[in-house]
């Protein structure tokens, strides 16, 4: 037995600004279990080929299909329709540039983040391809790995009040990224250099501690602890020089 499921989906195309944003309703047959991602494809195939939304991997790896599902930033591919009763409302992520309907451009935002935080290992050491790789203790490797689990879906940014009103705020994704390099012994940046990047209201001190990032991370990253770790580091660096 399948049931009828109603979706209320945000529609807007920036290329036709005369048509004001509106919510459009679709009803589909819902099998026993399906993800929001599957449902969207069904709607597009069977009812409305003009519906815009993003996806690539279908497996919570690429982070493309993040959207606001019944008020919460979630991955469409990792959220089941059966988690909700009644109508499911879908909105695009705020903060990011709206491409149309549910599709947003997170890429440009994250590229800016990478350049701003200089998100690569800074070292003066010459790379020797023949030398054995330097060893790293397991604990450090795990700390780096934990921060690197971020898939850059943008849910933490969309949920953040500060990011919603301050365009220059780097948010949990940005601060988490810096935390990743701060624990990496191969990165030779000084405390001063990190402070320049993130010791301001654009970075660590812009966070007001509302923790919507921590509540809504689809990868369950420990964002509160990452944010407070970086905040304390910034305090130490800022007061030491």
């Amino acid at each position: 037995m399948s049931i009828q499921r109603k979706f209320s989906i945000f529609r807007y195309n920036p290329n036709t600004p005369d048509v004001k944003p509106f919510m459009q309703e679709y009803v589909i047959e819902e099998p026993q279990s399906m993800t929001i991602f599957t449902a969207l494809n069904k709607i597009r195939e069977e009812q409305d080929p003009s519906l815009m939304f993003d996806f690539v991997c279908r497996a919570a790896i690429c982070g493309s299909c993040a959207m606001v599902i019944n008020g919460k930033p979630r991955l469409a591919c990792k959220t089941l329709t059966t988690d909700f009763s009644g109508t499911i409302t879908l909105m695009p992520l705020p903060v990011f540039k709206l491409v149309g309907d549910l599709s947003v451009d997170t890429g440009a935002w994250f590229r800016h983040l990478s350049l701003k935080t200089k998100a690569w290992v800074h070292t003066d050491k010459e790379f020797d391809p023949n030398a054995a790789e330097e060893r790293m203790d397991n604990e450090t490797a795990l700390l780096i790995y934990e921060a690197e689990r971020c898939i850059e879906c943008g849910c933490c940014i969309a949920g953040c009040v500060t990011a919603n009103i301050r365009e220059d705020f780097l948010g949990a994704a940005g601060i988490n990224r810096v935390a990743r390099f701060m624990v990496d012994p191969r990165d030779e940046r000084s405390g001063n250099e990190y402070f320049e990047v993130i010791g301001s209201d654009e970075g660590a001190f812009g966070c007001m501690g509302l923790m919507a990032c921590d509540d809504n991370c689809p990868m369950q990253l420990p964002l509160q602890l990452q944010l407070s770790f970086v905040r304390r580091k910034m305090l130490a660096f800022g007061l030491s020089k």
């Binding site: 008020g71 919460k72 009040v161 919603n164 509302l210 923790m211």
Partner: peptide
């Protein structure tokens, strides 16, 4: 307006 809308949408206790 953004914050008010956001808080209502997100229903996050801390927000």
């Amino acid at each position: 307006q953004i914050i008010w809308r956001h808080a209502k949408m997100l229903e996050g206790a801390d927000t």
